[in-house]
Amino acid sequence: MSELKPDQLRKMNKDERDERMKELKENLLRQRASVAMGGSPLNPGLIKSIRRQIARIRTVDHEEETKR
């Protein structure tokens, strides 16, 4: 799963962004669960990256809502 830039997110429609958000939230949940169970994450920066991607999607959604 690669990081999407804001301009790539703006080109996506709402349904595609919602699907991407769902995938990211599930992935974040899995990563946090593995850390909570006492394991160490395979990639320590992955949780931060996932959170940033979620924030980007929410920002683009908010921008589109305020345009209307």
Results as ranks from 00 to 15, higher is better:
residue 23 E to M: 06
residue 11 K to E: 14
residue 56 R to Q: 07
residue 52 R to T: 05
residue 6 P to T: 09
residue 15 D to N: 14
residue 67 K to D: 15
residue 13 N to R: 09
residue 34 S to I: 10
residue 14 K to W: 02
residue 29 L to W: 05
residue 5 K to I: 03
residue 32 R to F: 04
residue 8 Q to D: 14
residue 55 A to K: 14
residue 65 E to H: 10
residue 31 Q to K: 07
residue 27 N to L: 10
residue 2 S to D: 09
residue 64 E to T: 04
residue 42 L to I: 01
residue 48 K to R: 06
residue 67 K to I: 11
residue 21 M to N: 09
residue 65 E to T: 11
residue 68 R to W: 13
residue 45 G to Q: 14
residue 24 L to N: 04
residue 39 G to N: 13
residue 7 D to W: 10
residue 34 S to H: 11
residue 42 L to D: 12
residue 29 L to E: 14
residue 25 K to V: 08
residue 63 E to W: 06
residue 39 G to C: 08
residue 58 R to W: 06
residue 66 T to F: 09
residue 13 N to M: 06
residue 33 A to S: 12
residue 52 R to P: 00
residue 3 E to D: 15
residue 46 L to D: 14
residue 42 L to S: 13
residue 55 A to G: 07
residue 9 L to T: 00
residue 47 I to R: 14
residue 68 R to Y: 13
residue 47 I to C: 09
residue 46 L to M: 12
residue 44 P to A: 06
residue 50 I to T: 12
residue 22 K to P: 01
residue 11 K to C: 04
residue 30 R to T: 12
residue 60 V to W: 07
residue 11 K to Y: 00
residue 59 T to N: 12
residue 61 D to F: 06
residue 36 A to H: 07
residue 45 G to K: 10
residue 13 N to Q: 12
residue 57 I to K: 03
residue 37 M to W: 06
residue 35 V to H: 02
residue 64 E to A: 02
residue 62 H to W: 10
residue 65 E to L: 11
residue 37 M to I: 06
residue 32 R to N: 12
residue 36 A to L: 13
residue 46 L to A: 10
residue 38 G to P: 05
residue 41 P to L: 11
residue 33 A to Q: 13
residue 43 N to Q: 07
residue 48 K to P: 00
residue 37 M to E: 15
residue 52 R to S: 05
residue 61 D to Q: 05
residue 6 P to M: 04
residue 1 M to C: 07
residue 44 P to I: 05
residue 4 L to D: 13
residue 58 R to T: 11
residue 24 L to P: 04
residue 12 M to L: 15
residue 47 I to A: 10
residue 68 R to V: 13
residue 12 M to G: 09
residue 4 L to R: 13
residue 59 T to K: 10
residue 34 S to R: 10
residue 7 D to P: 11
residue 33 A to C: 03
residue 12 M to T: 01
residue 21 M to E: 13
residue 47 I to W: 02
residue 33 A to D: 15
residue 3 E to I: 14
residue 51 R to N: 11
residue 17 R to S: 08
residue 32 R to Q: 14
